[in-house]
Design a protein around this nucleic acid. Structure first.
Lengths: 173, 173
DNA sequence: ATATTTGCAAATTATTTGCATAATT
DNA sequence: AATTATGCAAATAATTTGCAAATAT
Protein backbone atom coordinates (compact mmCIF):
# COMPACT_ATOMS: atom_id res chain seq x y z
CA UNK A 1 0.00 0.00 0.00
CA UNK A 2 1.05 3.61 -0.18
CA UNK A 3 3.59 4.12 -2.91
CA UNK A 4 4.84 1.09 -4.73
CA UNK A 5 2.15 1.41 -7.36
CA UNK A 6 3.11 -0.82 -10.23
CA UNK A 7 4.65 1.12 -13.04
CA UNK A 8 2.35 1.03 -16.02
CA UNK A 9 5.11 0.60 -18.55
CA UNK A 10 6.83 -2.34 -16.92
CA UNK A 11 6.76 -5.63 -18.74
CA UNK A 12 4.06 -7.96 -17.59
CA UNK A 13 1.94 -5.01 -16.55
CA UNK A 14 -0.84 -3.10 -18.21
CA UNK A 15 0.27 -0.43 -20.65
CA UNK A 16 -1.76 2.59 -21.75
CA UNK A 17 -3.55 0.54 -24.41
CA UNK A 18 -4.75 -2.10 -21.98
CA UNK A 19 -5.71 0.68 -19.63
CA UNK A 20 -7.96 2.13 -22.30
CA UNK A 21 -9.63 -1.18 -22.90
CA UNK A 22 -10.21 -1.67 -19.22
CA UNK A 23 -12.01 1.62 -19.07
CA UNK A 24 -14.24 0.47 -21.90
CA UNK A 25 -12.84 2.68 -24.61
CA UNK A 26 -12.20 1.35 -28.06
CA UNK A 27 -8.73 0.67 -29.23
CA UNK A 28 -8.69 2.37 -32.60
CA UNK A 29 -5.77 2.63 -34.94
CA UNK A 30 -5.44 6.36 -34.25
CA UNK A 31 -5.40 5.82 -30.51
CA UNK A 32 -2.76 3.17 -30.80
CA UNK A 33 -0.64 5.48 -32.93
CA UNK A 34 -1.07 8.40 -30.59
CA UNK A 35 -0.01 6.33 -27.62
CA UNK A 36 2.86 4.81 -29.59
CA UNK A 37 4.14 8.26 -30.41
CA UNK A 38 4.05 9.29 -26.77
CA UNK A 39 5.76 6.07 -25.76
CA UNK A 40 8.69 6.52 -28.09
CA UNK A 41 8.99 10.22 -27.42
CA UNK A 42 11.30 11.46 -24.73
CA UNK A 43 9.76 14.70 -23.67
CA UNK A 44 6.58 16.65 -24.14
CA UNK A 45 4.36 16.85 -27.19
CA UNK A 46 1.82 19.40 -28.31
CA UNK A 47 -1.32 18.34 -30.18
CA UNK A 48 0.17 19.53 -33.44
CA UNK A 49 3.37 17.62 -32.84
CA UNK A 50 1.37 14.49 -32.11
CA UNK A 51 -0.47 14.83 -35.37
CA UNK A 52 2.78 15.31 -37.28
CA UNK A 53 4.49 12.40 -35.58
CA UNK A 54 1.57 10.08 -36.27
CA UNK A 55 1.56 11.36 -39.81
CA UNK A 56 5.23 10.44 -40.19
CA UNK A 57 4.26 6.95 -39.14
CA UNK A 58 1.89 6.83 -42.05
CA UNK A 59 -1.51 7.65 -40.62
CA UNK A 60 -3.39 10.82 -41.29
CA UNK A 61 -5.06 12.24 -38.22
CA UNK A 62 -7.33 15.19 -37.85
CA UNK A 63 -6.28 17.66 -35.18
CA UNK A 64 -9.69 17.45 -33.58
CA UNK A 65 -9.14 13.75 -33.10
CA UNK A 66 -5.86 14.45 -31.39
CA UNK A 67 -7.51 16.98 -29.12
CA UNK A 68 -10.34 14.65 -28.25
CA UNK A 69 -8.00 11.83 -27.40
CA UNK A 70 -5.58 13.95 -25.45
CA UNK A 71 -8.48 15.20 -23.39
CA UNK A 72 -9.70 11.68 -22.88
CA UNK A 73 -6.29 10.35 -21.93
CA UNK A 74 -5.76 13.26 -19.56
CA UNK A 75 -9.05 12.66 -17.87
CA UNK A 76 -8.03 9.06 -17.29
CA UNK A 77 -4.66 10.26 -16.01
CA UNK A 78 -2.81 8.40 -18.70
CA UNK A 79 -1.42 11.68 -20.00
CA UNK A 80 -0.43 14.67 -17.95
CA UNK A 81 0.16 18.20 -18.97
CA UNK A 82 3.57 19.83 -18.84
CA UNK A 83 4.09 23.32 -17.53
CA UNK A 84 6.24 24.74 -20.25
CA UNK A 85 5.57 28.38 -20.83
CA UNK A 86 4.18 28.62 -24.32
CA UNK A 87 0.64 28.95 -25.60
CA UNK A 88 0.18 25.41 -26.84
CA UNK A 89 -0.42 22.75 -24.25
CA UNK A 90 2.11 19.95 -24.07
CA UNK A 91 1.67 16.48 -22.66
CA UNK A 92 3.51 13.33 -21.73
CA UNK A 93 2.56 9.88 -20.56
CA UNK A 94 1.96 9.74 -16.85
CA UNK A 95 3.69 6.40 -16.61
CA UNK A 96 6.86 7.97 -17.97
CA UNK A 97 6.59 11.04 -15.80
CA UNK A 98 6.33 8.79 -12.79
CA UNK A 99 9.38 6.88 -13.85
CA UNK A 100 11.61 9.18 -11.90
CA UNK A 101 12.73 11.07 -14.91
CA UNK A 102 13.24 14.58 -13.63
CA UNK A 103 14.87 17.61 -15.13
CA UNK A 104 17.17 20.33 -13.98
CA UNK A 105 16.33 23.12 -16.37
CA UNK A 106 18.39 26.20 -17.13
CA UNK A 107 16.29 29.34 -16.89
CA UNK A 108 18.43 31.12 -19.45
CA UNK A 109 19.09 28.76 -22.31
CA UNK A 110 16.59 26.02 -21.55
CA UNK A 111 19.19 23.29 -21.50
CA UNK A 112 17.84 20.36 -19.48
CA UNK A 113 19.84 17.86 -17.48
CA UNK A 114 18.06 14.69 -16.57
CA UNK A 115 18.40 13.08 -13.17
CA UNK A 116 16.80 10.10 -11.56
CA UNK A 117 17.38 9.77 -7.85
CA UNK A 118 15.15 12.35 -6.27
CA UNK A 119 14.72 10.80 -2.86
CA UNK A 120 11.13 11.85 -2.50
CA UNK A 121 9.89 8.44 -1.47
CA UNK A 122 10.41 9.13 2.22
CA UNK A 123 8.41 12.32 1.94
CA UNK A 124 5.66 10.46 0.12
CA UNK A 125 5.43 7.81 2.80
CA UNK A 126 5.30 10.49 5.44
CA UNK A 127 2.53 12.35 3.62
CA UNK A 128 0.58 9.16 3.01
CA UNK A 129 0.58 8.50 6.73
CA UNK A 130 -0.50 11.98 7.68
CA UNK A 131 -3.15 12.47 5.03
CA UNK A 132 -4.32 8.93 4.26
CA UNK A 133 -3.90 9.71 0.56
CA UNK A 134 -2.91 6.80 -1.64
CA UNK A 135 0.08 8.34 -3.39
CA UNK A 136 0.42 7.60 -7.09
CA UNK A 137 3.34 9.71 -8.18
CA UNK A 138 5.08 13.04 -8.20
CA UNK A 139 6.44 15.66 -10.52
CA UNK A 140 9.58 17.55 -9.77
CA UNK A 141 11.45 20.13 -11.74
CA UNK A 142 14.45 22.02 -10.49
CA UNK A 143 15.49 25.26 -12.12
CA UNK A 144 18.75 27.12 -12.14
CA UNK A 145 21.38 28.67 -14.33
CA UNK A 146 23.79 26.44 -16.18
CA UNK A 147 27.56 27.01 -16.12
CA UNK A 148 27.62 28.47 -19.64
CA UNK A 149 24.92 31.00 -18.89
CA UNK A 150 26.64 31.97 -15.66
CA UNK A 151 29.58 33.06 -17.81
CA UNK A 152 27.57 34.76 -20.53
CA UNK A 153 26.87 38.51 -20.28
CA UNK A 154 23.26 37.75 -19.40
CA UNK A 155 21.41 39.13 -22.40
CA UNK A 156 18.28 37.92 -20.65
CA UNK A 157 16.63 37.74 -24.06
CA UNK A 158 16.49 34.01 -24.50
CA UNK A 159 13.84 32.77 -22.14
CA UNK A 160 12.98 29.12 -22.02
CA UNK A 161 11.73 28.16 -25.43
CA UNK A 162 10.06 25.14 -27.03
CA UNK A 163 13.42 23.66 -27.86
CA UNK A 164 13.89 23.02 -24.20
CA UNK A 165 13.78 19.38 -25.13
CA UNK A 166 16.39 19.87 -27.83
CA UNK A 167 19.51 19.29 -25.78
CA UNK A 168 19.73 17.35 -22.62
CA UNK A 169 22.40 15.37 -20.92
CA UNK A 170 22.03 12.97 -18.05
CA UNK A 171 23.51 12.89 -14.61
CA UNK A 172 23.53 10.80 -11.47
CA UNK A 173 21.45 7.70 -10.78
CA UNK B 1 26.36 30.03 -3.70
CA UNK B 2 24.15 27.15 -4.68
CA UNK B 3 20.76 27.43 -3.07
CA UNK B 4 20.24 30.00 -0.40
CA UNK B 5 19.06 32.50 -2.94
CA UNK B 6 17.40 35.32 -1.09
CA UNK B 7 13.67 35.08 -1.19
CA UNK B 8 12.33 37.92 -3.24
CA UNK B 9 9.41 38.57 -0.99
CA UNK B 10 11.32 38.86 2.25
CA UNK B 11 11.37 42.17 3.97
CA UNK B 12 14.43 44.19 3.25
CA UNK B 13 14.80 42.50 -0.07
CA UNK B 14 13.78 43.45 -3.55
CA UNK B 15 10.20 42.59 -4.46
CA UNK B 16 8.85 42.08 -7.95
CA UNK B 17 8.40 45.81 -8.45
CA UNK B 18 11.99 46.64 -7.61
CA UNK B 19 13.05 43.77 -9.80
CA UNK B 20 11.24 45.34 -12.72
CA UNK B 21 12.91 48.67 -12.16
CA UNK B 22 16.29 47.04 -11.97
CA UNK B 23 15.70 45.49 -15.33
CA UNK B 24 14.94 48.92 -16.74
CA UNK B 25 11.20 48.46 -17.17
CA UNK B 26 8.82 51.18 -16.21
CA UNK B 27 6.71 50.84 -13.15
CA UNK B 28 3.26 51.69 -14.45
CA UNK B 29 0.08 51.67 -12.47
CA UNK B 30 -1.15 48.61 -14.35
CA UNK B 31 2.03 46.69 -13.63
CA UNK B 32 1.85 47.54 -9.97
CA UNK B 33 -1.74 46.35 -9.84
CA UNK B 34 -1.00 43.14 -11.68
CA UNK B 35 1.82 42.32 -9.32
CA UNK B 36 -0.27 43.31 -6.32
CA UNK B 37 -2.97 40.92 -7.40
CA UNK B 38 -0.50 38.08 -7.73
CA UNK B 39 0.99 38.94 -4.36
CA UNK B 40 -2.28 38.76 -2.49
CA UNK B 41 -3.51 35.72 -4.37
CA UNK B 42 -2.89 32.27 -2.98
CA UNK B 43 -2.84 30.10 -6.03
CA UNK B 44 -2.74 30.42 -9.77
CA UNK B 45 -4.30 33.06 -11.97
CA UNK B 46 -5.24 33.09 -15.61
CA UNK B 47 -4.94 36.27 -17.68
CA UNK B 48 -8.67 36.81 -17.52
CA UNK B 49 -8.70 36.38 -13.77
CA UNK B 50 -5.91 38.90 -13.45
CA UNK B 51 -7.87 41.43 -15.45
CA UNK B 52 -10.95 40.87 -13.32
CA UNK B 53 -9.04 41.09 -10.07
CA UNK B 54 -7.35 44.31 -11.10
CA UNK B 55 -10.71 45.56 -12.21
CA UNK B 56 -12.15 44.87 -8.77
CA UNK B 57 -9.36 47.01 -7.38
CA UNK B 58 -10.64 49.85 -9.49
CA UNK B 59 -8.42 49.87 -12.56
CA UNK B 60 -9.59 48.93 -16.02
CA UNK B 61 -7.07 46.86 -17.88
CA UNK B 62 -7.11 45.58 -21.42
CA UNK B 63 -6.53 41.86 -21.77
CA UNK B 64 -3.71 42.48 -24.20
CA UNK B 65 -1.94 44.47 -21.53
CA UNK B 66 -2.28 41.57 -19.15
CA UNK B 67 -0.89 39.20 -21.74
CA UNK B 68 2.00 41.46 -22.55
CA UNK B 69 2.94 41.84 -18.93
CA UNK B 70 2.54 38.21 -18.07
CA UNK B 71 4.83 37.38 -20.91
CA UNK B 72 7.30 39.96 -19.76
CA UNK B 73 7.22 38.83 -16.15
CA UNK B 74 7.58 35.23 -17.23
CA UNK B 75 10.56 36.03 -19.35
CA UNK B 76 12.17 37.65 -16.35
CA UNK B 77 11.25 34.64 -14.25
CA UNK B 78 9.16 36.72 -11.91
CA UNK B 79 6.09 34.70 -12.85
CA UNK B 80 5.98 31.02 -13.63
CA UNK B 81 3.37 28.98 -15.35
CA UNK B 82 1.35 26.33 -13.56
CA UNK B 83 0.65 22.98 -15.09
CA UNK B 84 -3.04 22.70 -14.44
CA UNK B 85 -4.83 20.90 -17.20
CA UNK B 86 -7.12 23.43 -18.77
CA UNK B 87 -6.80 25.47 -21.94
CA UNK B 88 -6.04 28.82 -20.33
CA UNK B 89 -2.57 29.32 -18.99
CA UNK B 90 -2.26 30.04 -15.29
CA UNK B 91 0.57 31.73 -13.46
CA UNK B 92 1.92 32.51 -10.05
CA UNK B 93 4.78 34.55 -8.66
CA UNK B 94 8.03 32.68 -8.72
CA UNK B 95 8.97 34.04 -5.31
CA UNK B 96 5.87 32.43 -3.85
CA UNK B 97 6.33 29.16 -5.71
CA UNK B 98 9.84 28.97 -4.35
CA UNK B 99 8.56 29.48 -0.87
CA UNK B 100 8.21 25.78 -0.39
CA UNK B 101 4.52 25.75 -0.87
CA UNK B 102 3.82 22.39 -2.45
CA UNK B 103 0.65 20.48 -3.08
CA UNK B 104 -0.52 16.95 -2.72
CA UNK B 105 -3.33 16.80 -5.25
CA UNK B 106 -6.09 14.23 -5.48
CA UNK B 107 -6.40 12.86 -8.99
CA UNK B 108 -10.09 12.21 -8.58
CA UNK B 109 -11.64 15.23 -6.92
CA UNK B 110 -8.83 17.74 -7.24
CA UNK B 111 -8.68 18.46 -3.52
CA UNK B 112 -5.25 19.85 -2.71
CA UNK B 113 -3.38 19.53 0.56
CA UNK B 114 -0.56 21.93 1.10
CA UNK B 115 2.74 20.89 2.61
CA UNK B 116 5.98 22.67 3.24
CA UNK B 117 8.87 20.48 4.22
CA UNK B 118 9.94 18.77 1.03
CA UNK B 119 13.54 17.98 1.90
CA UNK B 120 14.81 18.64 -1.58
CA UNK B 121 17.62 20.89 -0.48
CA UNK B 122 20.07 18.03 -0.14
CA UNK B 123 19.29 16.89 -3.64
CA UNK B 124 19.73 20.42 -4.92
CA UNK B 125 23.13 20.75 -3.32
CA UNK B 126 24.14 17.43 -4.77
CA UNK B 127 23.00 18.42 -8.26
CA UNK B 128 24.68 21.81 -8.00
CA UNK B 129 27.97 20.07 -7.28
CA UNK B 130 27.65 17.59 -10.09
CA UNK B 131 26.38 19.95 -12.75
CA UNK B 132 27.77 23.34 -11.70
CA UNK B 133 24.30 24.79 -12.15
CA UNK B 134 23.41 27.67 -9.87
CA UNK B 135 20.09 26.35 -8.51
CA UNK B 136 17.32 28.90 -8.14
CA UNK B 137 14.33 26.82 -7.11
CA UNK B 138 12.17 23.81 -7.67
CA UNK B 139 8.60 22.80 -8.28
CA UNK B 140 7.13 19.71 -6.80
CA UNK B 141 3.66 18.26 -6.97
CA UNK B 142 2.65 14.94 -5.58
CA UNK B 143 -0.49 13.21 -6.79
CA UNK B 144 -2.63 10.54 -5.27
CA UNK B 145 -6.12 9.60 -4.28
CA UNK B 146 -7.64 11.16 -1.22
CA UNK B 147 -9.37 9.11 1.50
CA UNK B 148 -12.85 10.15 0.37
CA UNK B 149 -12.25 9.15 -3.23
CA UNK B 150 -10.76 5.84 -2.13
CA UNK B 151 -14.17 5.08 -0.60
CA UNK B 152 -16.25 6.37 -3.47
CA UNK B 153 -17.42 4.01 -6.25
CA UNK B 154 -14.92 5.64 -8.61
CA UNK B 155 -17.18 7.26 -11.17
CA UNK B 156 -13.99 8.44 -12.82
CA UNK B 157 -15.99 11.27 -14.34
CA UNK B 158 -14.72 14.15 -12.30
CA UNK B 159 -11.20 14.81 -13.49
CA UNK B 160 -9.15 17.54 -11.95
CA UNK B 161 -10.88 20.77 -12.69
CA UNK B 162 -10.11 24.48 -12.39
CA UNK B 163 -11.53 24.55 -8.88
CA UNK B 164 -8.51 22.62 -7.79
CA UNK B 165 -7.65 25.69 -5.79
CA UNK B 166 -11.10 25.80 -4.24
CA UNK B 167 -10.53 23.58 -1.27
CA UNK B 168 -7.25 22.92 0.33
CA UNK B 169 -6.12 22.11 3.79
CA UNK B 170 -2.62 22.24 5.16
CA UNK B 171 -0.43 19.62 6.70
CA UNK B 172 2.97 19.21 8.28
CA UNK B 173 5.71 21.83 8.47
C1' DA C 1 11.59 65.35 -24.42
C1' DT C 2 12.02 60.64 -25.22
C1' DA C 3 11.23 56.11 -24.96
C1' DT C 4 8.12 52.88 -23.27
C1' DT C 5 3.56 51.28 -22.33
C1' DT C 6 -1.27 51.30 -22.94
C1' DG C 7 -5.95 50.58 -25.13
C1' DC C 8 -8.36 49.53 -28.97
C1' DA C 9 -9.37 46.88 -33.00
C1' DA C 10 -8.16 43.43 -35.88
C1' DA C 11 -5.42 39.29 -36.86
C1' DT C 12 -3.78 34.98 -35.75
C1' DT C 13 -3.54 30.68 -33.39
C1' DA C 14 -5.52 27.18 -30.27
C1' DT C 15 -9.32 24.44 -28.99
C1' DT C 16 -14.07 22.75 -29.26
C1' DT C 17 -18.34 21.19 -31.44
C1' DG C 18 -22.07 19.21 -34.79
C1' DC C 19 -22.99 15.92 -37.76
C1' DA C 20 -22.61 12.28 -41.31
C1' DT C 21 -19.55 8.42 -42.19
C1' DA C 22 -16.48 4.78 -40.88
C1' DA C 23 -14.63 1.56 -37.72
C1' DT C 24 -14.63 -1.27 -33.30
C1' DT C 25 -16.77 -4.41 -30.24
C1' DA D 1 -26.17 -4.66 -35.19
C1' DA D 2 -25.15 -1.33 -31.88
C1' DT D 3 -22.20 1.94 -30.33
C1' DT D 4 -18.37 4.68 -30.32
C1' DA D 5 -14.76 7.21 -32.78
C1' DT D 6 -13.31 9.76 -36.84
C1' DG D 7 -12.94 13.50 -40.33
C1' DC D 8 -14.51 17.53 -42.03
C1' DA D 9 -16.18 22.13 -41.62
C1' DA D 10 -17.47 25.65 -38.94
C1' DA D 11 -17.67 27.86 -34.33
C1' DT D 12 -15.67 29.56 -30.25
C1' DA D 13 -11.91 30.83 -27.24
C1' DA D 14 -7.10 32.17 -26.40
C1' DT D 15 -3.27 34.87 -27.59
C1' DT D 16 -0.72 38.19 -30.42
C1' DT D 17 0.04 42.36 -33.12
C1' DG D 18 -0.12 47.28 -35.27
C1' DC D 19 -0.68 51.71 -34.32
C1' DA D 20 -1.99 56.20 -32.26
C1' DA D 21 -2.54 58.24 -27.76
C1' DA D 22 -1.06 58.34 -22.96
C1' DT D 23 2.37 57.87 -19.34
C1' DA D 24 6.84 57.13 -16.81
C1' DT D 25 11.44 58.43 -16.61
Amino acid sequence: MGRGFKNLLDEGNEGPCQLLKQKGMRLTRQRKEIIAVFLEQDGYLSPGEVRDAVSRRGLYLDLSTVYRNIKLLSKEHILIRADVDDPVARYELACKARKHRHYLVCECCGRAVEFHDCGIEALEDNLAQKTRFRISGHRLQITGICPECQEAPSTSTGAMSPDMKASHEEVGE
